[in-house]
Amino acid sequence: MADPKLTLYGESFASRLLLGTAGYPSPDILARAAKASGAEILTVSLRRESARQRTGQGFWQLIEELGLKLLPNTAGCHTPKEAIATAQMARELFGTDWIKLEVIGNDDTLQPDLFGLVEAAKALSNDGFKILPYCTEDLSAAERLIAAGCEVLMPWGSPIGSACGLSNRPGLKALRAYFPDIPLIVDAGIGAPSHAAEAMELGYDGVLLNTAIAKAGDPVAMAAAFGKAIEAGHKAFAAGLMEPQNMASPSTPVAGTPFTRADRAS
């Protein structure tokens, strides 16, 4: 029986969806999508503020009004040094020691630089941060991140914004099996509610996504669909899924089938 609540760093959440805030058609649609999704954790970022446009000030007002738990990211950082300074700025700006730690290794795939990620995680953990690292399904990197103080891991499903879903299902299953007691969240690459449900059916603790909702034809309706899919996947995993097999197995009882004769094989 799985826990009905998602617990990360001692805080519990009823929803297992972590929602990104970028790329919505309007601030109002973002606010309505967040509500429809049921998400209690929103990812946010920080960017250079222009004195003339003051873009960030309006966004901050919107986010404050939503009143949800904030998870700032270090998106776009390519070195541990950049990620550490960005995390420190985010902690002051958003008033939280939670950080979605990203150290990007390649601009085409946006895959994590696992070496830089571990280095940054060590430094930030020593500085009191609660780190949610954007990583891969690599087991040895996962071990080093946990040793560095990470109490949550967020492996990618597939490249950020690709909508390819879970491209290494066996790898994600192995990670789940190796770390049964560490909260695992699939972060990135989710394109459809079925992808999110699949992650939950593998026993993952949550799903983080952004683009699949923000860029949907109707982001508010899609947010609700994802909320239901994640809940369904979680309940299905908790209920115990049957294992696939190669041959058919009749669901209707064979005994008493009319017109059959014991001496006639099918």
Partner: peptide
């Protein structure tokens, strides 16, 4: 000098 503010993120 870097001066940053809250922004949308995934």
């Amino acid at each position: 000098i870097e001066i940053v503010a809250p922004r949308q993120g995934g």
